[in-house]
């Protein structure tokens, strides 16, 4: 939230996703992992995608990067990046598109570093392969890059195992922004890290974002973290977006029962100790309708009156599957 709110509001979207539908096609049955999802991300905007495992948020990220593998298929919809149709790109175009235009930091990305190469060799590799720079120039740029995320450039000669988890994650983030992409996709960038390190990484991302001005698609299940970092956010459930608005509006005034349940799943750090419940028993959302605007910029999927029974601090229930049920229809 310390990121200046003025930086978003640009009407030129960097990324525009319309009615994206992704299916996992099996022999006997198919699963719709992402169902008619639309959103756009403006220049310099941080857009959050919240939801639990299985709700399709990582599938969306992989669709944008065109990283989906069989049996996943983009069944319908369009993804356009800076006016270009991502779904129509040739392999050669894709190669340039990835990393140069859109970079992605995966969950526990710090474990994706090659253990037998030094950090320096791995960063130099980016510049020589994607930017065609000389080795010497690449090495200089690699040093600058580490300084950007406040790692001592002497660390270029270190192997991944010699760095702590937080440092490795910072190095991976540095590598992601090496080619100055205009969109950075962060898929649960801090799930494997401690709170203290997590806070540092998030501060680092905010700072880089301010400095380099890229847009961010931020994927996480941690609502508190998301509200802190994002300008706008969307909540997903069973492959559908159930609510989208400015992050603080979602936090202050969650409308959809699922959003409310997700918010209620995080015990507060202040105030009295009240019993919380996850998603209450028996509440499952099916056939989620299209979003409708309830307030300026605040869109919510209409829900039945039967689902309205959710209130904060009610009887604790033990529901497990509600979130998953929707995804495996």
């Amino acid at each position: 939230m310390t990121v200046s709110q003025t930086s978003f509001g640009s009407h030129e979207p960097v990324l525009d996703v319309q009615d994206l539908t992704v299916k996992y096609i099996g022999d006997s049955r198919s699963t719709t992992a992402v169902d008619r999802v639309s959103f756009s991300i403006g220049t310099g905007e941080v857009f959050g995608l919240a939801g639990e495992s299985g709700c399709g948020k990582s599938t969306i990220a992989n669709s944008i990067m065109r990283l989906l593998k069989d049996p996943a298929k983009i069944a319908a919809g369009s993804i356009s990046f800076g006016g270009r149709d991502v779904l129509a790109m040739s392999p050669e175009e894709l190669r340039r598109f990835r990393w140069q235009d859109v970079a992605m930091v995966f969950q526990s990305a710090m474990n994706s570093l090659n253990p037998v190469l030094t950090i320096g060799e791995q960063i130099v590799d980016i510049f020589t392969t994607h930017a065609g720079l000389s080795r010497k120039e690449s090495l200089r740029r690699a040093g600058e890059l580490l300084e950007l995320v406040r790692i001592d450039p002497a660390r270029l000669k270190s192997y991944p195992h010699q760095l702590s988890g937080g440092m490795r994650q910072r190095a991976v983030i540095a590598m992601a922004v090496a080619l100055k992409p205009s969109l950075l996709i962060l898929d649960e960038p801090t799930t494997a890290l401690d709170v203290v390190v997590q806070q540092e990484i998030m501060a680092q991302i905010k700072e880089l974002q301010r400095e380099l001005g890229f847009s961010v698609l931020f994927i996480t299940h941690d609502m508190s973290l998301m509200v802190e970092l994002s300008h706008r956010m969307a909540v997903m459930y069973g492959g559908r977006i159930v609510e989208t608005a400015r992050a603080h509006d979602v936090y202050a005034d969650p409308r959809h029962p699922y959003t409310q349940a997700l918010m209620g799943a995080f015990p507060p750090l202040t105030g009295p100790r009240v019993p919380l419940s996850g998603l209450p028993d028996g509440v499952k959302f099916r056939n989620i309708p299209d979003l409708a605007e309830v307030a300026p910029g605040h869109l919510v999927a209409p829900f039945g009156a039967g689902d309205l029974s959710i209130a904060h601090g009610t009887q604790a229930t033990d529901d497990e599957d509600a979130a998953l049920e929707g995804a495996i229809r």
């Binding site: 203290v196 507060p268 750090l269």
Partner: peptide
């Protein structure tokens, strides 16, 4: 104090 300050909490603006 360090641990407590690191917990993300939207209610506590400017926590970093």
């Amino acid at each position: 104090q360090l641990l407590v300050s690191a917990v993300p909490d939207p209610a506590r603006a400017g926590s970093y």
